[in-house]
Design a binder for these strands. Structure first.
Lengths: 153, 153
DNA sequence: GGTGAAAAGCTAGCTGA
DNA sequence: TCAGCTAGCTTTTCACC
């Protein structure tokens, strides 16, 4: 993956609806060549998918919270149990006193309480500590341009 | 926004490269009608953008950490200061003892240390506590189908 | 709001370099 | 690996329901 690939990734992160002609022009390539490179980036898994980004508040996700989960046993195999709770958007195994950090979105704080109840129901979970977000400054993706020292687009 | 809109959103979250013909078929609409609805969802800001999802590890973001930031002053106006650090992917004002929670991706732990140094450099910051992620179970978007009680796709 | 068809524009494959 | 070409889709708009 060279510099042109990283420029393509940065463009597609911002807007994946651009035509290959426009995309190629932005990185100094013909439409065909741009298409070829993007296709390979997809095949290699560098581009996982292209997805519509939905406003959470518009679909009942106005309340955001981060929850640390304590446990009495090894949680390394409990991925499915957390994935089964649709309000849990991220689940990470962490180094530290707690075992897991999960990100939760609900419409109301009452629903957040219900999600905490369901997290307690997961085998091995001995406690939770929820931190409610008051305001989100920004949420963005990793920049492909950091690698070779380019300024972010 | 009705049930059909939510079905369209769920489809586009999974794969925004489908044609409107396929998309319409999936929700029981003609291509033209599907296109019209998606266009309106974009105009109303329910769909913020459509973006390529890049594998973080492939572009130098293999190390993930969550950092709580303590401060001596009101941090509600420091959005730009954190946005200026490209490795900071999310920044949230939180309710609790710390002021901010930020999500950071770097290639190495040395680079993580450098990001912590830059966070310390933000006006008002008095301390940080970093939690390194050992394994990420999953990262996904909010489900549009939760609102009206449908099973997640 | 929805349908169906027509025109403009795009994608995706091929070839030659 | 790229540029140029082309056939086949897709998007986008339109009149009509």
């Amino acid at each position: 993956m060279d510099h042109v690939d990283r420029l393509l990734l940065a463009q597609l992160q911002r807007d994946a609806t651009q035509s290959y002609a426009v995309l190629g022009q932005a990185v100094g390539l013909s439409a065909g060549a741009a298409h070829e490179r993007v296709k390979k980036l997809r095949e290699r898994g560098v581009i996982r998918r292209t997805a519509a980004e939905v406003d959470p508040a518009a679909v009942g996700g106005g309340v955001l919270a981060f929850v640390t989960v304590d446990s009495t046993s090894w949680m390394g195999e409990s991925s499915e149990a957390f994935a089964a709770i649709p309000e849990v958007l991220e689940a990470h195994v962490i180094a530290g006193s707690a075992s897991l950090l999960v990100k939760v979105r609900t419409a109301t704080t009452e629903q957040l309480q219900d999600v905490l109840r369901r997290i307690y129901g997961v085998a091995g979970v001995s406690g939770t500590q929820a931190t409610v977000v008051l305001e989100t400054f920004f949420e963005r993706q990793v920049s492909p341009l950091l690698v070779d020292g380019d300024p972010p687009l």
